[in-house]
Amino acid sequence: MSLQSAVVLANTALEPDTLTTIEELDDFFTSYEYSGRHERTLEELEQVRALRPVLRALMLAERDDAVEMVNTMLADAGAVPRLVRHEPYDWHIHACDPDADLVTRLTVETAMAMIDVIRTDEMSRLGVCADDDCDGIVLDLSRNRSRRFCSTTCGNRNAVAAYRARQSDTA
């Protein structure tokens, strides 16, 4: 879930920007079931917004570059993995204190998720949307690695364009 939320967070920076208010940050925080401190301030919102290009760069980096980025993120945050349990989850890993600021927790959780992507050599699961007019990040968790678009909107737009092209060819 941390990797999916990081992709969604990075993609909020696309036009139109969908992370411009504290309410939108609240919705993101709630939707991805984050726990811990959430200040609900403009300063926190701006810090999260500033994190988006960092997450994008990490998820689109080459494997060895991603390793360096992950190690730096974890070191800078003073990450110390430990097992925790809280509702609605059984034992799982948190690598920073729940009182750490939201940006630190988002950074560390994304870095921890990327460890598995890097370790299993699955960087190809992350890429850029196949829509020519979109730069969204795609997280392809499909069995056959067939996901090409960042959203249903981009997929539908391309399906309609392909249909229209086929129709004009037969006309």
Rank of each mutant, 00 (worst) to 15 (best):
11 N>F: 08
56 R>D: 03
150 C>K: 02
38 H>L: 10
49 R>S: 10
117 V>N: 01
74 L>Q: 02
133 D>S: 13
120 T>G: 00
49 R>F: 04
40 R>M: 07
171 A>Y: 06
139 L>H: 05
123 M>R: 12
4 Q>L: 12
167 Q>K: 15
138 V>Y: 01
14 L>R: 14
153 T>K: 09
141 L>C: 03
37 R>E: 13
132 D>M: 07
24 E>Y: 03
171 A>S: 14
117 V>D: 02
160 V>G: 04
32 Y>N: 05
87 E>G: 05
61 A>S: 15
83 L>Q: 11
46 E>T: 15
21 T>M: 11
6 A>R: 03
74 L>E: 02
160 V>S: 09
155 G>P: 01
69 M>I: 10
127 G>S: 13
7 V>H: 02
69 M>A: 10
164 R>F: 07
28 F>E: 04
87 E>M: 07
99 D>R: 11
104 T>Q: 09
20 T>Q: 14
55 L>T: 02
79 A>L: 07
37 R>A: 12
167 Q>I: 11
164 R>M: 11
116 D>M: 07
124 S>E: 15
51 L>W: 01
11 N>D: 14
130 A>F: 04
113 A>I: 10
48 V>L: 10
127 G>P: 08
19 L>C: 07
61 A>V: 11
143 R>A: 14
27 D>N: 13
132 D>K: 10
101 D>M: 08
78 G>Y: 04
88 P>M: 05
81 P>F: 06
84 V>S: 09
157 R>Y: 07
156 N>V: 15
147 R>W: 09
129 C>I: 08
4 Q>G: 14
113 A>H: 05
60 L>G: 01
94 H>T: 10
104 T>F: 05
107 T>A: 07
139 L>I: 07
131 D>W: 05
17 D>E: 15
63 R>D: 13
64 D>M: 09
73 M>T: 01
126 L>M: 08
49 R>T: 12
10 A>V: 10
102 L>M: 14
140 D>S: 06
71 N>R: 06
147 R>F: 07
